[in-house]
Design a protein around this nucleic acid. Structure first.
Length: 423
RNA sequence: GGAGAGAUGGCCGAGAGGCCGAAGGCGCUCCCCUGCUAAGGGAGUAUGUGCCAAAAGCGCAUCGAGGGUUCGAAUCCCUCUCUCUCCGCCA
């Protein structure tokens, strides 16, 4: 959520910013509501003040043993007035809040203009594309003989699920281990284990609700649970309604979790293979930082994710998402795209975002600034470090051999009992 | 699943319809004093929010959450959530 005061004092700026995302903000409706809000809030608070003052007087009169009946008569109709004012105020605030919750974050100045991923800005490339003396297969063709079974996933659950057997399953676990070990031992993150079902408050805090409910799986319960679409949700919510001690910052968490996405609206895209599943494994990096540190933290966090690709010697490129492709809650996002020989394409394997105070405001996640002594909003960041399912695909495709076997990358062998080849 | 107890500020804890945004203690910050020194004294110390460009100031809201009773609710009533204890079941 953006700062409501920004809407009040700098509406044009907000409108301009939203235009970068291709959003036409309805200022007229907003202003109408906001003006009414101001009137009614002032009126309501005046009435409350009057009630409080008079009630206090009644109490004092009673204490002195005076006749309070005349005082009671005076406040008779106050209650009704207050009730209707409060009701109206509540309704207007709910409507304003609705509008505000639907407004995406302001983009960082560095974010390039553009409408779709075609307009994203390539920042760098790393690694040499592998040269094959044969036509490289994609992970589906490679995987099926090795224990990657989509039919079984469909039988057990539905399309967009997979069963991994044997060494492929182990390979994915090794990948996860490598990521966790690297981020905890080399990058200073604290490993975290969290609930994979969360409540609506948590999803509101990180921005998935109310706007993106269709992307989530819901679990019948009262109140409902949601399957996490990313560990970002439970992990970032660690600091919801918390005032973090400045001494403990930055907070850096790494968390491996399954992720569940309904992929509503993704019908027909990436239907083949493990690229887009309802359930996949991911190692997530989350940082809670002081505002002045978030830009640097964003670079660092992205580098931390890149480290994994480098350790695995997987060629990738780093792109800065353009205005139209940057997510709702993010102010600036780098995507890391890994080379997939089977598709002859770079595909997203990590998305690293600086949310600045957008999530923090929804979360009421703050820190106490020693200079002012006051609680101030923190900045939150997160990024995949990396998506494990897609990393598995990338390893398979980049390390494939002519005979359909897969060489195990050196850094992973320690996690696989020294195994150097999957066949 | 059954039975019971509880939820108050950073922490502990009082509070039983008005003088309570809340005693007292601990902790923390600042100041003072001091060679009876791992001591003493004093002051300060919740959050959100409205009016305001902002500060100051003046309000409003918040005692687990939501609703109700009342002129007035931390306090009474209802619903829910969470925590703890015991029993049952169980990875």
């Amino acid at each position: 959520m953006l700062d409501p005061r920004l809407f009040r004092s700098e509406l044009e700026l907000v409108q301009q910013q939203l235009k970068r995302r291709g959003i036409d903000f309805d200022a007229e409706t907003y202003l109408g509501l906001e003006n009414r809000r101001k009137d009614i809030q002032v009126k309501t608070q005046e009435l409350q003040n009057e009630r409080n003052t008079r009630s206090k007087a009644i109490g004092q009169a009673k204490g002195k043993g005076e006749d309070i009946q005349p005082l009671l008569d005076q406040v008779q109709d106050l209650g009704d007035q207050l009730k209707s004012a409060e009701a109206e105020l509540g309704e207007i605030q709910a409507r304003l809040n609705n509008i505000m919750e639907g407004v995406p974050n302001m983009l960082d100045a560095a974010v390039p203009a553009g409408k779709s991923d075609a307009d994203n800005l390539e920042i760098s490339r790393w690694g040499d594309l592998p040269q094959f003396s044969f036509t490289p297969k994609d992970h589906v063709d490679l995987g099926e003989p090795l224990g990657m079974n989509f039919e079984l996933g469909a039988k057990i659950a539905s399309a967009r699920f997979v069963v991994l057997a044997g060494k492929l399953a182990t390979l994915q676990r090794a990948i996860i281990q490598l990521m966790l070990d690297t981020h905890t031992n080399e990058h200073g993150y604290q490993e975290t284990y969290v609930p994979f079902l969360v409540n609506a408050d948590s999803l509101r805090g990180t921005g998935q609700l109310p706007k993106f409910e269709a992307d989530l799986f819901t679990v019948k319960n009262d109140p409902a649970f949601y399957l996490i679409p990313t560990a970002e949700v439970p992990v970032t919510n660690i600091v919801r309604d918390v005032i973090v001690d400045a001494k403990h910052m930055p907070l850096k968490y790494v968390c491996h979790s399954p992720c569940f996405r309904s992929e509503a609206g993704a019908y027909g895209s990436d239907v083949r293979g493990m690229i887009r599943q309802h359930q996949f494994e991911k190692v997530e990096l989350v940082q809670i930082v002081k505002p002045e540190q978030s830009a640097q933290a964003h670079e660092d966090l992205t580098n931390h994710a890149e480290t994994i690709l480098k350790k695995l010697k997987l060629p990738y490129r780093k792109v800065l998402l353009c205005a139209g492709d940057t997510g709702f809650s993010s102010s600036k996002t780098y995507d890391l795209e890994v080379w997939l020989p089977g598709q002859q394409k770079y595909r997203e394997i990590s998305s690293c975002s600086n949310f600045k105070d957008f999530q923090a405001r929804r979360l009421q996640a703050r820190w106490r600034n020693p200079e002012t002594g006051k609680p101030e909003l923190v900045h939150t960041l997160n990024g995949s470090g990396l998506a494990a399912g897609r990393t598995l695909i990338a390893v398979m495709e980049n390390y494939q051999n002519a005979d359909g076997t897969i060489t195990v990358p050196e850094v992973l062998r320690q996690y696989m009992g020294g195994l150097d080849r999957i066949d």
